[in-house]
Simulated assay, not measured.
Amino acid sequence: MRTFWIIATVILLWNLMGDAAYLMQVNADLDEMAKADPVTAAAFDSMPAWAWGAYALAVWGGTLGAILLLLRREIAWVFFALSLVGVIAQFGWTFLGFGLIAAKGWSTAVFPAVIFAIALASLLYARAKAKDGTLR
């Protein structure tokens, strides 16, 4: 059971970092950002409301899932699933709608791939813990 608490806490901390990144990005001064990274500033500026909504779903859904996981609630997996949908939608727009790879190269896909992998792993972990009776 100790391993469960460690993993669940790490998942929560990861998601809290995502929340912080979201808040920084949604409140970013795009004129200042454009001085250092004009491509990212252009991506944020052209990001449609639904993609920002997907981003919010990804981070806040993951955080709620992590809290529910720590509370040992079976419904945690549902919020991790919603978070994963948000991740896919948001990065789908970033790579297909905005064309970030064309603008910045393939290396820009590495961190989003890590985010996707952690979101998927969180969902699978919560499902496994629901099945083995850890979550109720």
Score class of each variant (00 low, 15 high):
F91S: 03
L68Q: 06
W93F: 10
V85M: 12
I88V: 15
F95L: 12
L96V: 10
W93I: 03
V85P: 04
I75E: 13
T63Y: 03
L84G: 03
V87G: 01
G65S: 09
L71T: 08
G86R: 09
A76Y: 01
W77Q: 10
I67L: 15
G65V: 00
L64P: 05
S83R: 09
E74Y: 06
L71I: 11
F79G: 02
W60I: 04
L68D: 00
L69G: 01
L82T: 02
Q90L: 11
R72M: 10
G62H: 06
V59R: 12
I88P: 02
I88K: 10
L70N: 04
I75Q: 09
L96A: 14
F95N: 09
L68I: 09
F91L: 12
G61K: 00
L64E: 07
I75H: 01
L96P: 02
I67F: 05
F79T: 01
G92A: 14
G61A: 06
L71F: 03
I67P: 02
V87C: 11
F95P: 07
L69C: 13
I75F: 09
L84K: 04
A89R: 05
I88S: 11
E74G: 15
W93H: 11
A76G: 10
G86S: 13
Q90F: 14
R72N: 02
I75N: 03
A89W: 11
R73Q: 15
L68E: 08
G62V: 11
G86D: 11
S83F: 06
V85A: 15
G65R: 05
W93M: 12
I67D: 01
A66T: 00
R73P: 02
A81K: 03
G61T: 14
L69Y: 00
W93D: 03
L69F: 09
A81E: 11
F79I: 01
W93G: 00
R73D: 00
I67S: 05
F91N: 08
L70Y: 00
A66K: 02
F79C: 02
L70F: 09
A66M: 01
L96N: 14
A89G: 13
W93N: 05
W60E: 00
L70R: 03
L70T: 00
S83I: 08
V59S: 08
E74K: 15
L70G: 11
L71E: 12
V85S: 05
E74L: 09
T94I: 15
L84W: 06
V59T: 14
L82D: 02
V59Y: 09
A76N: 08
V59C: 08
G65Q: 03
L64K: 06
G62Q: 13
T63P: 05
V78W: 07
L68R: 05
R72T: 08
F80P: 03
L71Y: 05
W77M: 06
Q90T: 10
G61N: 07
S83A: 12
W77E: 09
L69Q: 06
V59P: 05
L69S: 00
S83H: 04
T94L: 15
L84D: 01
Q90E: 12
